[in-house]
Design a protein around this nucleic acid. Sequence first.
DNA 1: CCGTATCCCTTAAGATACTG
DNA 2: CAGTATCTTAAGGGATACGG
Lengths: 113, 113
Amino acid sequence: MDRDEFVADCRVRAATDLFAHTWDPVVLAALASGPRRRRDLRLAIGGIRDKVLTDALRRLLAYGLIDRRAHAEAPPRVEYALTGLGRSLVDGPMRALGRWAIEHGDQLLDAER
Amino acid sequence: MDRDEFVADCRVRAATDLFAHTWDPVVLAALASGPRRRRDLRLAIGGIRDKVLTDALRRLLAYGLIDRRAHAEAPPRVEYALTGLGRSLVDGPMRALGRWAIEHGDQLLDAER
DNA sequence: CCGTATCCCTTAAGATACTG
DNA sequence: CAGTATCTTAAGGGATACGG
């Protein structure tokens, strides 16, 4: 991997932007263990607003990281799940980041925000 | 790694927040090949404003990911470098993210922004 | 249950100019 | 060279209420 691939206009930049929105990685993580209904998602995450969750889901759908399945029932049932692409992101880079956080997280001086 | 370690209030969340600011990972990447003076940093990155670079450097210093060395000379010389912690982040998770981006980046539908 | 519609507030980040 | 000082704009995210 060349150094310049890392700087400014590069594909790595596009990848880090996937984490630019606070809740997006959290939603991805909540889907790591399998498909989930919207409500379960919101409860599992905790502290997320409906609007914010909607925004996050929309972005992740647009990126092709998750997909949405609506079942025509009453009451309505909608499930979200990782796509293959989303799965590869979660199992690869996100897991690596998780391991790093567990190992080095306590060294972060100002990580509270 | 437990599932709950991944969701909402967890250390992974703290880690993803490190990528929440657009230019922070770019600056880290630009320091991957070794210490750099502020000016070189700005030129290597390209398209970054002085103020924005200052903001990014301040955050990274506060997080303990980089350090700053000012040499008492004329003209002034200031060098920034990765700390051990910063190095571990760049060589680990960021590199994993880079590999993922190179492999799967073209599948991102709306990654332009 | 699954969202949408507002309103508000804060902050990132761009643009421009200037100092030690 | 290495920053600081303002100003401005856009957008993320929180709070609350309502609609299909």
